[in-house]
Design a protein around this nucleic acid. Structure first.
Lengths: 227, 227
DNA sequence: ATACTGTGTTCTGTATTCAGAATGTAGACT
DNA sequence: AGTCTACATTCTGAATACAGAACACAGTAT
């Protein structure tokens, strides 16, 4: 068997991984609402597996902060928390800024389609498409940074943010402002302006944080900020 | 039962958590050398539990990058990797810088004992004590930042770094330079000099990165840098 | 009526069993 | 001798079985 004519078939992901992904998706896109009670048996039955892989998946999700231990009765899809989200944005801002700096050092030229696509989706399409375009833009920068750890962390952050974004239903006017900022960031990176790219990115994260957290507080019926 | 005379007994951590911690400690402090093969049965027997909690613990550790899937035969304690470590330091630097900025905004006055303690340990004591003092210094800043997510991420980073630090056996001269930098950072934070604290911290992380990664490459017998 | 206690139900985490995949080894064949 | 195949071994991940903790409810005593 010298002729390597056969394509490698990728290893089947374990059930535990699949359950993890399925739950993560459902939680991120809001189809599992914050506060929902989950039991291992329920999930196991619905996905046609035993409780073992479900248990493992839930442990992973707990570590990531997507579910909490409910008092005694199963686990809870983590409720939305404005303070926590605000702090998550702080971390994300630092990471985004780092990624922008690194990408600018390489004068990364982003595919303009990402920007164009973002603008068009922000005008018309669904919330989901808007969030997705947003994420794709930032993911491109993470990848361009050459540091895979950034994307790894950011993926988790974005899963959390998707949840919040979906819940607060940003209006398209705000979305437009976002893509102006995106364009400026892309230009700075392509021009190799390291400091400027970092600064714009930090401001962008800060703006996004303010917009999002303020709206989240309204949705949650919170009165003031404790942070 | 109105008199609350009884101290709450804390919930017993699950076996899975305990196995996770025990393995994490052993890997971080080097008693489980990089490249060591681990089997679930071995661990289970040594810790007097069944394979179930061990499996869960290993999944967690795999997600954190402390172990890898060995080809077909068990898992492997992750080998040290200079490039990867370098990138980890990039992320840590960004987070440290953020923490320093936030701590400086609050003019956090650090307990001088941490600094004094660091200097004395760097002169005489064991490697372990030196690393510990280093970590305690940075942990204090993370806590002072008021953003618990920073400490959460950083704990993982430090577990990785402890491994590397232990492996390269820094000489005490370098250690001394570190505590000069620490003192300067603490001063800047206490003075509320946000920008300066951030800058010093970033430089500190960069220095530490260069020192550590260079030594690691020597230990690993690598020739050049691909980053 | 109210407060307390005992019991049933529910759900988790751990142990145990089971089935499948990968490696190593011995033997057969050229 | 070298190579291929069949089998034994080893190890994992999933399924099942088991024991203990937490809540809910009912019944009893005051």
């Amino acid at each position: 068997m010298n002729a390597s004519r056969f394509s490698k078939l990728e290893a089947r992901p374990s059930y535990a991984d699949e359950v993890y992904q399925a739950l993560l998706d459902a939680i991120s896109d809001g189809s599992l609402a914050p506060g929902t009670r989950l039991t291992q048996e329920e999930i196991a039955e619905q996905m046609n597996v035993s409780r073992s892989p479900v248990l493992q998946a839930l442990q992973l999700l707990r570590k990531d902060g997507f579910v909490q231990d409910a008092p005694g009765r199963g686990v809870l899809v983590a409720p939305l928390d404005a303070d926590w989200t605000s702090k998550l944005y702080e971390v994300r801002g630092a990471l985004d800024s780092l990624a922008a700096r690194l990408a600018a050092q390489r004068c990364f030229r982003m595919d303009r389609a990402l920007l164009d696509n973002g603008r068009t989706t922000s005008a018309s399409s669904s919330i989901k498409a808007m969030i997705d375009a947003d994420m794709q833009f930032h993911l491109a920068i993470y990848r361009a940074s050459g540091n895979p750890l950034i994307e790894e962390s950011a993926r988790l952050h974005w899963a959390h943010l998707r949840r919040v974004m979906g819940a607060v239903l940003m209006v398209s006017g705000q979305r437009h402002a976002i893509w102006d900022e995106h364009a400026a960031i892309a230009d700075a990176i392509a021009a190799g302006s390291v400091a400027r790219a970092a600064e714009l990115t930090e401001q962008h994260a800060e703006h996004a944080r303010e917009r999002l957290v303020a709206r989240l507080r309204i949705v949650l019926g919170e009165t003031g900020s404790s942070v």
